[in-house]
Amino acid sequence: MNAKLQLKNLTKSYGKTTVCNGIDLEIEQGQMVCLIGASGAGKSSLLRCINLLEDIEEGEILLDGVDISTPGFDPQKVRSRIGMVFQSFNLFPHMTALDNAMLAPRRVLGKTRAQIRPEIEELFHKFGLADRMHQFPNQLSGGQQQRVAIVRALAMRPEVMLFDEITSALDPQLVGEVLDVLLMLKNQGMTMVLATHEMAFAREAADVVCFLKDGQIVEQGPPSQIFEAPKQNATQSFLARALK
């Protein structure tokens, strides 16, 4: 079976700084892949490249076997199939939570409010946000905002979800409620790629963990291998510091 998402020799640089340096990765349908590594290792850049928010210089990004990184490929088509959630939530502050989630289905899929509202309200219910739907982002806690951002991405019924350090801007006591949402998604069979600093979560929930350093995947494997028996020195020293 072909991989859902496949990266081949993905290379991206800003000027002289190479942020992704020949990354190869295969992600099966329904897998959760966690990218770990120090800040600046290239985790966020990799996610932004997959969502075509950045153009890559070399390599291929295959979604269901189709190269979506071909120059000229319509990025809108890709982005409505690949959802992305950001570290800083990036909710639209001038809209209620519900309108945030309904905007893309209305504009991109051309649906009416009435058509999509039941489905999206159900998402709010499912993620414990039923009483927050009509509030504006600045009336919500960080954890609630981040869950709304996830609902907003899910409203497009994406096939793959990318999460860019989505708990890094949260107070420690709010991290749990967001990670719970990720587990729910995993149980539903969503294909997910996470850049994260939550080592305990990666160890418990990931199917594959990739350790990145200087824009390269130094080591990848199941969490048991990466966390308990890392082969590379770089992985060992990173984990020694991260797990302290």
């Binding site: 969502n51 950001f86 800083s88 639209f92 001038h94 893309a104 504009r107 991109v108 991405a153």
Partner: peptide, 25 residues
């Protein structure tokens, strides 16, 4: 700029991102 990125990541076009997300703010 992150507002534009968020709008684009949802599949909105540049023009839609401008009209629905950036201009109102």
């Amino acid at each position: 700029k992150s507002q534009r990125a968020a709008a684009l990541s949802l599949g909105l076009s540049e023009r839609q991102a401008m009209r629905d997300v950036i201009l109102p703010q």
